[in-house]
């Protein structure tokens, strides 16, 4: 029986991406280790994403608080606003929104950069120059994305909570220490740890898919644009799939 063309393409893509991931996992532990390039990528990926993530996190915390307030007032539980916002940000909204912003900025940038290098033969030139381009380009970028995203999520959560604190104070008067006492009194270790762990996987997905799309870019400059675009789309979908899987796992382990 012949599979429909779209199904076949989907399965081929999934197989190819899995093979790419397998190659990444085996390459991590084999020398030569590109330490210098790895740290450079940590700077590029982490530091340069910070302003955008800080801005969006701040707005997210502020808006979330302002949107929740009327509903909580209606139920007479306005005093629970810091706790509710804190849990929502730390458990779900912070990691997922930060990962989606990260996919938009870093996934597209990696896809376009590697795609452009591919079509202009820079990756071939690298190989001829005695460099394993997979290690130099893919392993360093994916590891940097994997390690930098959890850090950005933590920073984003903190900034988001500050935005929420300001949001609470737009129509009320809650001191800084009271707000954060209420937030942290209602947060358990099991709220923070699974969210932190899943952000590593979000980073892995963004880095790996950006590299995969760029590394196998074809059809000239049109292909570069397509690589950048599909890196963001596929990474975003996979972020939600990982999130879905993570909630099932934490549920099964009883840490929800």
């Amino acid at each position: 029986m012949q599979l429909p063309v779209k199904t076949r393409h989907f399965l081929e893509e999934a197989g190819s991406l899995s093979a790419f991931m397998g190659r990444f996992l085996t390459s991590i532990f084999k020398p030569r280790f590109e330490i210098g390039e790895f740290f450079r990528q940590c700077y590029v990926i982490g530091y340069r994403s910070l302003p955008l993530i800080a801005l969006t996190a701040f707005i997210m915390g502020l808006v979330l608080t302002m949107q929740l307030r009327p509903s909580l007032i209606a139920y007479g539980v306005e005093s629970q606003l810091p706790a509710m916002v804190g849990i929502a940000i730390m458990r779900e909204i912070g990691p997922v929104i930060t990962a989606l912003i990260f996919a938009g900025k870093i996934g597209s940038s990696i896809g376009a950069e590697l795609g452009s290098m591919k079509v202009t033969e820079q990756i071939d030139a690298m190989e001829v120059s005695g460099t394993n381009p997979f290690k130099y380009l893919v392993v360093t970028r994916t590891l940097a994305a994997m390690l930098m995203l959890p850090v950005l999520v933590l920073l984003g959560d903190a900034i988001s909570l500050y935005g929420a604190y300001l949001g609470v104070n737009i129509k009320g008067a809650t001191s800084f220490s009271l707000f954060f006492t209420q937030v942290f009194n209602n947060l358990a270790f099991s709220d923070v740890l699974p969210a932190f762990i899943k952000s590593f996987f979000f980073g892995l997905a963004v880095g790996l898919i950006g590299c995969y799309k760029g590394y196998y870019s074809s059809k000239g400059t049109e292909g570069v644009g397509r690589s950048a675009n599909s890196a963001v789309v596929v990474a975003s979908v996979i972020i939600f799939l990982i999130d879905l899987l993570a909630v099932q796992v934490t549920d099964a382990l009883g840490v929800n």
Partner: peptide
């Protein structure tokens, strides 16, 4: 190998391009 497209690393200076190999 002199590539048809030159294949210079566009994120590096001329010096870094030459130092790379």
């Amino acid at each position: 190998f002199l590539f048809q497209s030159n294949a210079l690393y566009d994120s590096m200076t001329v010096r870094q391009n030459l130092e790379f190999p």
